[in-house]
Amino acid sequence: MEIKEIKSNKKQYIDLLLLADEQESMIDRYLERGIMYILIDKGKVRSECVITVENGNTVEIKNIATYPEDQKLSNLLCK
């Protein structure tokens, strides 16, 4: 497994982002200023997380999602 920061073209993961936030207009409000990470396992993106820094010292999770077929730990370990 690998965790990778995504610095550009974050909208390529819109299908995964929409699992956690159903309104694309809301995603647009934080996506570009947010720090995005994806989890890759066996060459496939499984999860994502977007965080923002608020007020200089507070970090907020804005979006976190895992594809439904990957939501059970045993699924990841047995693939």
Rank of each mutant, 00 (worst) to 15 (best):
Y13I: 10
M36A: 09
S47C: 14
A65W: 05
N63P: 00
Y30A: 03
N63H: 03
L31S: 07
D41P: 02
Y30L: 09
E69N: 06
G43Q: 11
I14E: 09
V53N: 15
A20L: 06
E32M: 13
I40K: 08
T66L: 11
S25W: 08
N75I: 03
A20T: 05
D70H: 11
D21F: 07
I61D: 14
I27W: 03
L39E: 03
M36H: 00
Y67D: 00
Y13A: 07
E32G: 06
L77Q: 10
K62Y: 05
N55D: 13
R29H: 09
T58G: 01
R33K: 15
S74M: 07
L39G: 07
K7V: 10
K79I: 15
V50R: 07
K62T: 00
E32F: 05
L16W: 08
E60G: 00
E60H: 04
P68G: 06
Y67M: 02
D41Y: 05
K4A: 03
M26S: 13
N75D: 14
K79F: 14
Y67C: 01
E69M: 08
E48R: 05
I38R: 06
V45L: 05
Q71R: 12
L39R: 00
S47Q: 12
I61E: 09
L76S: 10
E48V: 08
Y67P: 00
E54F: 02
Q23R: 12
I40L: 08
E5H: 07
N9L: 10
E24V: 02
T66A: 09
K62F: 11
Y13F: 10
N63F: 04
V45S: 07
A20I: 06
K62W: 01
I40V: 11
N75T: 10
N9E: 13
S25D: 15
C78D: 11
E5Q: 15
E22H: 09
R29W: 05
R46G: 02
L17E: 08
V45Y: 04
I6Y: 01
K62L: 06
I40N: 05
N55F: 08
Y37E: 14
K10C: 02
V53Q: 14
M1L: 09
Y13P: 07
S8C: 05
L19C: 09
Q12I: 15
E69Q: 10
D70A: 06
S74K: 14
K42G: 01
I27R: 03
L17Y: 08
N75F: 00
E22A: 07
K7R: 15
D28F: 02
V53M: 15
I38T: 11
L76T: 04
D21Y: 08
K4E: 10
S47T: 03
L39K: 03
L18E: 13
E22V: 11
Y13E: 05
L17R: 03
I38H: 00
G34C: 09
G56L: 10
